[in-house]
């Protein structure tokens, strides 16, 4: 189980980082979200993996998982939402002001020569 979770965390982080390094704002926001998932799971894992032991006090039960990482992750989820919302709106505003959804606000390479923006279509290489 531990190995599985470690691999899942690593995969989410790898996907997140790769998308974070892409050139389009929307993709970057998606990357941020994936990275947030990875980090939240990672933080939760810091309290170790416990099955059927929620930190809700009950009479007659003595085994509880660590509540501290959960409190931190709960905060992180909400802040992550605020960050995602702000980032996507920033992207919208940048698109309006700069006429491009490229993260640098200007087209680079071949797309720039063809006029940039949404006119720039895939050139064969899918994905």
């Amino acid at each position: 189980m531990e190995a599985l979770i470690a691999v899942v965390i690593g995969l989410l982080a790898a996907c997140g980082v790769y998308l974070l390094l892409r050139a389009r704002t929307f993709t970057v926001v998606l990357g941020l979200m994936l990275l947030s998932y990875a980090v939240n799971l990672f933080l939760l894992a810091m309290g170790r993996l416990a099955l059927h032991r929620p930190p809700i006090l009950e009479a007659g039960r003595s085994a509880y998982t660590d509540p501290v990482p959960q409190a931190l992750v709960l905060t992180a989820i909400v802040i992550g939402f605020a960050m995602t919302a702000f980032a996507i709106v920033l992207a919208l505003r940048a698109r309006r002001d700069l006429g491009s959804d490229h993260v640098d606000g200007r087209e680079t390479g071949a797309c720039a020569e063809s006029g940039g923006g949404s006119e720039c279509r895939p050139d064969g290489s899918s994905s």
Binding site: F26, L92, R95, P122
Partner: peptide, 11 residues
């Protein structure tokens, strides 16, 4: 407000 399709990168 954004293009429905992404643009593949050069290189």
């Amino acid at each position: 407000y954004l293009p429905a399709h992404g643009t593949p990168e050069v290189g």
